[in-house]
Computed example of a mutant assay.
Amino acid sequence: MNLRERLVAERLKRNLTQKQVADMLSISEVYVRKIEKSQRNPGRETMLKFESIYGIPDRKLFPDLFRVSIDTKRINII
């Protein structure tokens, strides 16, 4: 399951192509595709641009980047 399904769903809901989104964000179509597939992570500025065009908080568009992970394993130093 792609963690960025909401990002894709919002684009499709607006009948936008990846090329149109790329043009709106001033980034490449390939980069949009990789962001949607979680193969690349956008910078903060790009996340805010996505938030602006979709009207959805970045935390909902990119939940994988905001997940809090608490590491409970420790290295015991003797």
Rank of each mutant, 00 (worst) to 15 (best):
K13M: 04
L7R: 00
V8G: 07
I35L: 04
K19F: 01
S26V: 03
Q39F: 12
T17V: 07
K37H: 11
S28W: 01
R44M: 10
E5M: 07
M24E: 03
L48C: 08
T17H: 09
K37D: 09
R44F: 11
E45I: 00
N41I: 07
K19I: 09
D23T: 06
K34F: 04
V21K: 01
N15G: 06
E29G: 12
E29L: 09
A22Q: 04
M24Q: 05
S38E: 15
R14C: 13
Q20A: 11
V32D: 03
E5L: 09
Q39T: 13
L25Y: 00
R40Q: 14
L25T: 03
V32K: 10
R40N: 15
V21A: 07
L12D: 06
T46K: 12
S38L: 07
Q20Y: 08
R33Y: 11
V30A: 15
P42K: 03
D23R: 00
E5R: 08
T17Q: 09
R40H: 13
E36S: 01
L12E: 11
I27K: 06
A22K: 06
Q18Y: 03
E36R: 02
N41D: 14
Q20H: 11
K13Q: 04
Q39V: 15
T17G: 09
Q20L: 08
E36H: 04
E10Q: 00
R40L: 11
I27D: 06
L12A: 07
R14E: 10
A9T: 01
R14A: 15
G43A: 06
G43W: 09
N41R: 14
K34R: 15
E36V: 01
E10T: 01
E45F: 04
V30T: 13
E45Y: 08
R40K: 15
D23F: 04
Q18G: 11
R33S: 14
R40V: 12
Q39L: 14
E45R: 12
E36W: 04
L12N: 05
M24D: 05
S28D: 10
K37Y: 11
Q18V: 02
M47F: 03
